[in-house]
Structures are given as C-alpha cells and as structure tokens.
C-alpha cells in the first residue's frame, strides 16, 4: 500500500504497545511481516534508549502517533517532537474528543491535519466512519485516512460496513486503512474485502493469549482476503440462485 511517497509491500501496520516483553513484540513484527510500526512519546523514564533500540532491531519504518492528545496544540507539539527524534515526517494523528470512547475529535483532527500538512508532515489521521470527517481530511490534503472499525481496543470489528463501503467508493485515490476495532481475523478479511488498502492493529495481537500465533493468523487472513478479491468473487444477490439445475429431477415431468 502507498503511504504518501512510500510503497509498502505489506499492508499491516502494527502498534508496539501492551506486549508482555520486547522479545514477544519482535517475534510478532516478524510474524506479521509488517514494515511499519506505530510508537508514542511520553515523559522520559528509566532507560529511555532501550525501547528505541528495540525499534531499530525491527528495521521497520516508524509511524509516531499523537495518542492521548486532546487538543490540536498537544498533537502538533507531539508531532514536532516525534519528528525531532525519529527523523520522519510521518505522523499518525489522533486528537481525542472523548476519554471514554476514545473517539476522535472531528474539528480538532481536521485543524491539526491542516497545520501539520503545512509544516511538511505526512499525516495519517485516525477518524470515525463519518463520511464528512473523512471527506474534509481528503479536502485539506491527507493522502491517507484511517477510519475506525469500532472504538480502540474493543475488538468489535467493523461496526458500520455500509458507511465504510461508501467511504471506500467515494475516495478511490486515497489510501484507506482500518485503524482500531480489529479483534478477529475475520475483521481483517472484511477490511480487505471492502477494498481498504490495509489495517492497523495493536491490541488484537498484543492482548491475545498467544500473540505470535495471532500475528501469524492476521498475515494469513489478509493474504487470503487479497487472493480472494483478485479472484473476482460473485456479486451479492437479494434472491436465491440455485447452484444445482432443477431440470431432470426424477419423477418430474419436464
């Protein structure tokens, strides 16, 4: 998938949080064959270089996030600090509206996206499945938009297929990634079947009982869905269409 001027062979982006150890995180990176990892910035703690060094071992591109930012100002400051550390213009933009649902702020996200684009960032905004929200971000110049399937960490999957489908059909030139809500491999398949370019997930892998196994299954699921979509699946029909001919049934006069 295309992330601004970057072409990724793999269409799975994974988060780096909530793993029980760096070792398991690194194994999951390998299992998903991901090329891009999301990270955050927080107040400096003990051994601030150790996580950075773990990230370097992955050889993946870093996608810093503005997770937890509640204002445009906080998000922009975090983006500037991230660029300073990671030397990347990429930023996963999150401006949160509600602490409980972790729903993004439409107004705050659009304003921050506009400013960050002007500052030379390649902005990947996290949105809901609201059409107007996505549309405005495309209008201000975002080449990638990441609607949620459902709220972060819920694992509820793609709650509103019709809305997500309309977004996909309306913005064929925009790279669209389902971010948040993925909990099962079937959700990843649905995203690809809807024509989304990729998925971004963290909790589904990191919080599963066997993260490596789940990571592996996600890669297989996405691959299966991609192959399947290339095969030209049958269109949905409102009426039943018999697969077996009704002609020549025994004792029937036809």
């Amino acid at each position: 998938m295309k992330i601004y001027n970057i072409n990724l062979k793999n269409n799975i982006i994974i988060g780096s949080s909530k793993y029980s150890s760096d070792k398991i995180f690194l194994k999951c990176v390998k299992k998903t064959e991901t090329e891009m990892i999301t990270v955050a910035l927080r107040k400096i703690g003990d051994n601030p270089d150790s996580f950075y060094k773990t990230l370097q071992k992955t050889k993946c591109k870093i996608l810093p996030n503005t997770a937890g930012c509640f204002s445009e100002k906080e998000a922009i400051n975090t983006a500037l600090m991230s660029r300073d550390i990671f030397e990347t213009d990429l930023i996963k933009l999150e401006v949160i509206q509600n602490e409980i649902t972790l729903a993004p702020s439409k107004k705050g996200t659009i304003k921050a996206a506009e400013k960050l684009l002007k500052l030379g960032f390649k902005v990947l905004p996290y949105t809901t499945d609201d059409f107007d929200f996505v549309s405005k971000l495309v209008d201000v110049g975002c080449k990638v938009v990441m609607p949620w399937g459902s709220p972060i960490g819920t694992g509820k999957g793609l709650k509103n297929i019709k809305k997500l489908k309309k977004i996909r059909e309306s913005f064929p030139e925009t790279t669209l990634i389902i971010d948040a809500g993925i909990g099962r491999v079937s959700h990843a398949c649905q995203a690809i079947e809807l024509g989304y370019d990729g998925i971004l997930l963290n909790s589904a892998i990191a919080r599963s009982e066997k993260p490596e196994l789940f990571a592996s299954s996600i890669l297989n699921a996405v691959r299966a869905a991609e192959i399947s979509m290339k095969s030209g699946p049958i269109p949905e029909s409102e009426n039943a269409i018999a697969s077996t001919s009704s002609k020549g049934i025994a004792f029937r006069k036809n």
């Binding site: 988060g15 780096s16 949080s17 909530k18 793993y19 995180f25 999301t38 990270v39 955050a40 910035l41 927080r42 107040k43 400096i44 703690g45 601030p48 270089d49 996580f51 950075y52 990230l55 810093p64 996030n65 997770a67 600090m81 550390i85 990671f86 972060i152 963290n202 909790s203």
Partner: peptide, 10 residues
C-alpha cells in the same frame, strides 16, 4: 521543561 522519549504506542 518537558523531556520526552519513545514509548510503546498503538
């Protein structure tokens, strides 16, 4: 003064 460093994130 705020000093930040990389941290796991999703």
């Amino acid at each position: 003064i705020e000093v930040v460093s990389p941290h796991p994130g999703g």
